[in-house]
Simulated scan of single mutants.
Amino acid sequence: MTIKVSKDELQLIEQIVDVKQQFYIADHSSEQFVKLSFQSLDRALELDDLVKVKLQTEGFDEKYKPNEVGRICESIIDKLHNILNQ
């Protein structure tokens, strides 16, 4: 299972995952994106849950519209959804 993420998306993911646990293998060979390959379905699901928590806690402004963090979270969730629902 692999997704392609932007540098901003990777930065947000790195902020919320426990670096001691290996959620994915990152391939930085492209300048435009980073490929994340997940070790297992469980790891991809766990990352999906963590990103959703980040979206709920930091992803909306006072008018409940997505802020920058929210837009990045939504993009990651969409990408994970595509591989988790195949």
Score class of each variant (00 low, 15 high):
Ser40Gly: 10
Gly59Val: 01
Gln32Asp: 13
Asp49Phe: 12
Lys20Tyr: 04
Ser29Cys: 08
Asp8Gln: 13
Leu45Thr: 00
Lys52Leu: 14
Ile16Gly: 10
Leu50Gln: 02
Asp8Arg: 09
Leu41Thr: 13
Ala44His: 03
Lys35Asn: 10
Ile16Glu: 06
Ile16Asp: 07
Leu12Phe: 08
Ser37Pro: 06
Leu47Asn: 03
Ser29Trp: 10
Ser37Asp: 13
Arg43Glu: 12
Leu36Phe: 12
Gln56Tyr: 08
Val19Tyr: 07
Asp42Gly: 06
Phe23Tyr: 06
Lys54Met: 12
His28Asn: 14
Glu58Asp: 10
Leu10Gly: 04
Phe33Trp: 09
Val34Gly: 03
Val17Lys: 07
Lys54Thr: 10
Glu9Arg: 06
Asp18Val: 08
Phe38Cys: 12
Ser29Met: 05
Glu31Ala: 13
Asp42Cys: 00
Val51Gln: 01
Glu31Pro: 02
Leu10Trp: 10
Gln39Lys: 11
Leu50Val: 03
Val19Met: 07
Asp42Gln: 12
Gln22Val: 13
Asp18Gln: 09
Leu47Asp: 01
Leu12Lys: 08
Leu47Lys: 04
Gln11Gly: 08
Ala26Met: 01
Asp27Thr: 09
Lys52Ser: 14
Asp48Arg: 15
Gln11Lys: 13
Asp8Gly: 02
Leu12Asn: 05
Phe23Leu: 00
Gln32Trp: 08
Leu45Val: 08
Lys35Tyr: 09
Val51Cys: 03
Asp49Thr: 09
Leu50Gly: 00
Thr57Pro: 00
Glu46Ala: 06
Tyr24Lys: 09
Asp27Pro: 08
Ile13Lys: 03
Asp49Lys: 15
Ala44Met: 03
Asp48Ala: 09
Leu55Gly: 04
Ile25Leu: 12
Thr57His: 06
Gln56Ile: 00
Asp18Met: 00
Gln21Ser: 07
Phe23Ala: 01
Tyr24Gly: 06
Gln11Asn: 15
Ser30Glu: 07
Val19Ile: 11
Phe33Leu: 03
Ala44Thr: 01
Gln15Glu: 15
Ser29Phe: 08
Leu55Glu: 07
Val53Lys: 05
Leu47Gly: 02
Val51Gly: 01
His28Val: 02
Gln22Ser: 15
Lys54Tyr: 02
Glu58Leu: 14
His28Leu: 05
Gln21Leu: 05
Gln15His: 09
His28Asp: 06
Asp8Lys: 10
His28Cys: 00
Phe33Pro: 00
Gln39Met: 09
Ile25Lys: 11
Glu31Gly: 07
Gln11Val: 11
Asp27Cys: 14
Leu41Tyr: 14
